[in-house]
Design a binder for these strands. Sequence first.
DNA 1: AACTTATTCAACCGCGACTTT
DNA 2: TAAAGTCGCGGTTGAATAAGT
Length: 230
Amino acid sequence: MRKPCCDKEGTNKGAWSKQEDQKLIDYIRNHGEGCWRSLPKAAGLDRCGKSCRLRWINYLRPDIKRGNFGQDEEDLIIKLHALLGNRWSLIAGRLPGRTDNEVKNYWNSHIRRKLISMGIDPNNHRLNQIPSRPQPKCDVSAAATSSESMNNERKPLKSFGKIDRPVSDGASSSLEDEMPGSLDLNLDLTIAFPSSPPVTLVEEKRQSSKSTGTREILLESEPAPTLILF
DNA sequence: AACTTATTCAACCGCGACTTT
DNA sequence: TAAAGTCGCGGTTGAATAAGT
């Protein structure tokens, strides 16, 4: 059988030194990404492959955009979070140059607090005080499109191809009933599935969107199925 | 200036899905 | 087909820094 990914004994941990960074950069420049297990040894690094991967993806990759998030990026994160929940890698995938870790951190340190201060539950994007329902300054209209899939207690969907957790579960109807006509997403989001989504999801989507008519969810079990939200 | 508290963010951990043997 | 390895993800932690007192 195979050897374990990395023996935890005798590998460096904690912050990366400049030398380590340089070794990793040099190695990946010459050999490309991949095979993280064997990379540390080949690159002369005393690190776990997992740690190398993380360092590269979150910090060293040349296409990483550093610095503050723009308002458009923030809006997009909110909208995508409303749709996808805490699937940071998917959200980051829509933000060029941003990493899942960065998006996650930004959400937890900035956006989350901002939504709370506006009386919006960041977990489900619902207003806490339903009766008055003030219009938030920030574009959180997507929040209203959210469903219970935002609930942090839900089981995470690990494989997108498998869709054992829908992008919005069927339980979303209660929310949509509550927030009719506030679904101005203005978001052209297309997610390509690696494989056809199960029919159950399609049916679920149709059922939940049927009642409201406020959101178009297109999920086709066709060769290149996409999820399109408006 | 010194201390405390809050915030940020890089890195680690554990788990589940996928792949390989 | 089962078991073990690998990879990627989300949650969490903790050190560094900033802000407040």
